[in-house]
Design a protein around this nucleic acid. Structure first.
Lengths: 173, 173
DNA sequence: CATTACAGTTCCAAAATTGAACTGTCAACG
DNA sequence: CGTTGACAGTTCAATTTTGGAACTGTAATG
């Protein structure tokens, strides 16, 4: 697959992954949510090579997730701050954090706690149904094609493999 | 950064990304949630090279996200199915889908709709506070160190950069 | 016996990433 | 005035990771 065409796939997961779905980009975004704004800040916090950092920041600006704003004239310097589109990535970040908190902590416990300003409590993020408000789990959800659905693009190696002739096997399930 | 040590960082985002944070792994997981279970299924749905697919599946099994279960003897064949730990990735997937639905759709609209079996309605996933139930946004949350917090590991290029001497600039902000 | 399905493995070329040095502006230091 | 340091990149060779394609092996089908 060519990653530069991922954004055109008829799938919101693929499109999103095309924009933010690589290790460095995700870590850069983590830093953004932790209020890092400048090149050197990202670089020293992450240890990413300057080359890649420049490249990734450019892409995030190009895709409208970060805005590049001058904070100083002569020499010109810019800060990278999250746009609304970028801020909207927050649920993804929180979902990632929460999974890590649940399944990847060591004996010490969580590295970071989150406090909800509105209610003043330490909390966990919970994903709920917009219609009934109940927490969601994979098994309680079914999918159906939406208006933007398209037939899965064929990806045959050579020929369209067709007519899967029925065969009997010692099926275990 | 060496990706193989990412899982030991004192950060739940880094640890999670160390396990699932690359393009192919995320797409493989999408397929898992869409009920793909077999090697050929993943391969033909994604167009991933068999080499990488084998490698990624091994890692997902090693990290306890997938279980490899025989479904046929002679020749031995296995299916890859999500463990509970894997199913718990659902909020991450839904958050990704929802961001894509919001920011990356074309004129046609969403490729896929989701129905909540419990309430029978098409829904969007919403991330709320576990304590007060209000929807979360980045600006309403503050963080504080948790029990597993550790000082950020220094990553100086050569020497610890210290004593940032005060300087005045033509600050724009 | 030839073909197909399935689940990998092997190998080479192409692409991405790393590490380290280099560019350039400007302020502060001595 | 010359040097150093902060900052934001850019450049380039050496590695590492991917991609593409073919190959291995079992077993059922025709």
């Amino acid at each position: 697959m060519r990653w530069d065409t991922l954004e055109e796939e008829p799938c919101s997961v693929a499109r999103t992954i095309g924009v933010i779905g690589d290790r460095w980009t995700l870590l850069i975004l983590r830093e953004c949510f932790l209020r890092t704004r400048r090149f050197e800040g990202f670089q020293s916090a992450l240890g990413i090579t300057r080359h890649l950092l420049a490249e990734r920041l450019k892409k995030l600006v190009r895709t409208g997730i970060l805005r590049r704003i001058p904070y100083q004239e002569s020499p010109k310097r810019h800060e990278y701050i999250l746009t609304q589109k970028g801020l909207d990535l927050y649920p993804i970040m929180m979902a990632i954090v929460h999974w890590g908190d649940t399944h990847m902590v060591d004996e010490r416990g969580r590295p970071l706690l989150h406090e909800h300003k509105k209610c003043g409590k330490l909390f966990d993020p919970v994903m709920v149904c917009s219609e009934c408000g109940e927490p969601l789990s994979a098994k309680e959800v079914t999918t159906r094609p939406g208006p933007g659905a398209r037939p899965r693009p064929n990806r045959p190696t050579k020929e369209s493999e067709s007519k899967p002739k029925s065969r009997k096997r010692a099926a275990t399930a």
